[in-house]
């Protein structure tokens, strides 16, 4: 996501245009909400967290001096998620490797194509669930990097800044995330791999 339009909207909001804030919320909805859902997996909790992140951002706006609003929002979201996960007991079942036995689902089928019929949509959903479970089984830091890349298309330099680590650490986490997903989705991967060779 481009930084400049967000910064322009933020500037308008700072000048008192409340509708500019509404547009900012809309613009950040997809990446930020997607990231939070991916991290906590509960859409209701994600919704509360999304609101909480934005309200905290608004209240702390006088301290915001960067030109990377999305990074700032992600940083707030990340801190809140870490707080929550510290209070929660680990769910052992979520740490189990995921791998289905049905290889008829392909990545192609889960890629967004809303012209497809309801039967196709159901199989999409099953594969999507397995992918989401595999993502959720990743260790927290790897999941963060993976979701910041996939949901917000954030560059690694920015991700490293949010995670407060070197860019090499963020890259290593992404490598491990890919390795773990590859293993977890091994049963689906034969189809996924052949799809990836398709031009």
């Amino acid at each position: 996501m481009e930084n400049q339009p967000l910064e322009n909207l933020l500037e308008q909001y700072r000048k008192g245009d409340i509708e500019a804030l509404g547009r900012l919320v809309d613009e950040t909805r997809r990446p930020l909400y997607g990231f939070i859902v991916g991290m906590v997996r509960d859409p209701h909790q994600a919704e509360d967290l999304f609101q909480d992140v934005w309200i905290r951002a608004i209240k702390g706006l006088h301290r915001y001096q960067s030109d990377r609003l999305l990074s700032w929002l992600f940083r707030i979201a990340r801190n809140r998620i870490i707080d929550i996960s510290r209070k929660r007991k680990p769910d052992a079942s979520l740490q189990q490797p995921i791998g289905g036995t049905d290889s008829s689902n392909t990545l192609e089928s889960v890629l967004p194509n809303f012209d497809q019929g309801p039967e196709r949509h159901t199989s999409n959903r099953e594969l999507a669930l397995r992918i989401q479970q595999a993502v959720h089984a990743l260790p927290l830091e790897q999941r963060e990097v993976y979701l910041m890349r996939t949901e917000a298309h954030m560059p690694f330099k920015q991700i490293a800044g949010i995670q407060n680590v070197s860019i090499n650490t963020s890259l290593a986490r992404m490598q491990y995330a890919i390795k773990h997903l590859r293993e977890a989705l091994a049963d689906d991967y034969a189809s996924l791999n052949s799809l990836s060779r398709t031009p």
Partner: peptide, 9 residues
């Protein structure tokens, strides 16, 4: 694998 995660979301 990155596209898959995005699509699943």
């Amino acid at each position: 694998l990155q596209k898959a995660g995005q699509a699943a979301t």
